[in-house]
Computed example of a mutant assay.
Amino acid sequence: MKVTESTSLYDNLDKMSVSEILTSINNEDAKIHIAVKSQISKIEELVTRLVDRIQSGGRLFYLGAGTSGRLGILDASEIPPTFGMPHGVVIGLIAGGDTAIRRAVESAEDKIHGGWEDLQQYNINEKDTVVGIAASGGTPYVIGALQDANKNGLLTACITCNPDSEIAKVATIAIEPIVGPEFLTGSTRMKAGTAQKLVLNMITTTLMIKLGRVKGNKMVDMQLTNKKLVERGSKMIVDELGIDFEEAQRLLLFHGSVRAVLNSIKNQLPNN
């Protein structure tokens, strides 16, 4: 039996108090960071290769079904607003299409060539990278896509929470944070899903930093899509230039990004 499907270490959940349930879930969650830490070398290998490939015009595709697919879409959707990257550099796909983001689409994950067919809509090529996300490690939609991607010369990787899984045997780089049985037997939206989310955060945040989308520890290319982000950007400029907040906000709204403001000021300095 797969670890993600194995029986919970806790029994009689329905007889537990609220405090006991919460404490037990938290105790299980404490195991997640250890599992993710064990995979840093694999994550490093993927990110290092991704930097070169994206600088050469490649893209990063996430594929998954159910919770795994939704996590990939979530991570991909945050890249443009957070880092100012164009839409279409990091792309998340889910078995069953956009409908499946909110509502399960029956049997979509069982279509062995479904993932590769979805990728064809993006004119996928050998510069691109496909990362399959599957807690169980046995999702046909994802496995088939990685197999076809391998045949066509793409870099492939996977994120799974079962050891010795079918998907790990297919992927060039297998990232396997094994978090053990879920508190609620088989509910991989819990520990497995959290582990996957942590890995996705690590991949894209490190990738964007190495692609030059961060200055110091600041998101200087973030999109100014609401008042909170305008205030955050203005404060970055205040901290960097030592000017008052109102002037920082005026410059930010005029130039459109923190980076553009800093570059404008730098260009006005002598010897630039």
Rank of each mutant, 00 (worst) to 15 (best):
P80L: 08
Q39S: 10
A100S: 04
T129W: 07
V230L: 11
V51D: 03
K210T: 00
I203K: 00
S187E: 00
E20K: 11
R59P: 02
F83T: 07
S187K: 00
N26L: 11
G138P: 00
L13K: 14
E117P: 10
A145K: 06
L9G: 15
S136Y: 08
E126V: 10
Y122P: 07
K266G: 03
E182D: 10
G153H: 13
R59N: 02
G72V: 03
G58D: 04
I25P: 10
V261E: 01
R59S: 00
T204H: 06
V36A: 02
Q120E: 09
A100F: 11
Q196E: 06
V36C: 05
T4G: 05
S17G: 14
L241Y: 05
K127I: 05
A168D: 07
V238N: 02
G242F: 00
M208P: 02
K210N: 10
K169C: 01
T188A: 11
V90Q: 06
E106V: 01
G114A: 07
L146C: 05
S56F: 06
I124G: 06
I175K: 02
A157T: 06
Q120M: 11
D148R: 15
K37Q: 15
G69D: 01
G64V: 09
I21K: 02
D239C: 02
V89T: 09
